[in-house]
Design a protein around this nucleic acid. Structure first.
Lengths: 117, 117
DNA sequence: TCATCATATCAGTATATACTGATATATAGT
DNA sequence: ACTATATATCAGTATATACTGATATGATGA
């Protein structure tokens, strides 16, 4: 896209939203909504592989959405800011009204989800 | 990722956030924040090509983030819900505090931006 | 030191998707 | 009907990135 004076802040915002724009990262964020969790906690909760969870956590951390508290062998992750949960909540509410539209949005599908086999 | 009872709502939310998670779509949403706009308006404002703008608008519309009012040859687009603007605002505020982290997030780059040439 | 556990990182692959250029559709004016 | 204008759609390409399996790192305990 064209580069304008305000482009960089737009790009930043897009990056921020990309933190939320993936089912795996979202399920991690959801799991962190009430409690801090270890990586293996999150692996159990989300069903993702451990490297995958770690990778998403690194992204979320780089982007400032989650914080890390290291204790011995364990890495405790938590939401870094109340507004992360607020954004999730607001999205929930918006979704309640536009859900039908989102359901029918076939233009950009979520990544294909593999069933066992 | 693993499919659980709550997966589908997570997937929906991820789709919703993907509407916001692209610089081009964000600049369109920003342009719509105060006024409804025609497609060619948006082409001018964003510097994107017309097919590209139309494509993003179709996505945003399918996902319920923008509304269309057709009038003759012109298509007037606007934000479909106040909460879309609210989400943008909340992200702005969050960004103000985590901007440094987002800047340094090299894990997932924004799509390469082409300069003239 | 050796084994185990928790987590992070790496290489490679497959897929999703943002973009362009060409073209189709539709409306308005002459 | 013809032209111009506004927008949508299509085919094709390039890139970003989510994922897996293997491996590295680092802490704990025997």
């Amino acid at each position: 896209m064209l580069i304008t004076p305000s482009t960089s802040s737009i790009a930043l915002q897009a990056k921020l939203f990309r933190g939320f724009a993936d089912p795996s990262r979202l399920s991690i964020l959801e799991a962190l909504r009430d409690n801090e969790r270890t990586v293996s906690d999150l692996v159990q909760t989300t069903g993702l592989t451990q490297p995958n969870v770690s990778n998403h956590l690194a992204c979320l951390r780089d982007c400032g959405l989650v914080s890390l508290r290291q204790q011995g062998r364990f890495a405790y992750y938590s939401l870094s800011d109340d507004r992360v949960a607020e954004l999730l909540l607001l999205a929930d509410e918006l979704l309640a009204d536009v859900a039908r539209g989102v359901y029918e949005c076939t233009r950009y599908n979520a990544p294909v989800e593999k069933t066992n086999g």
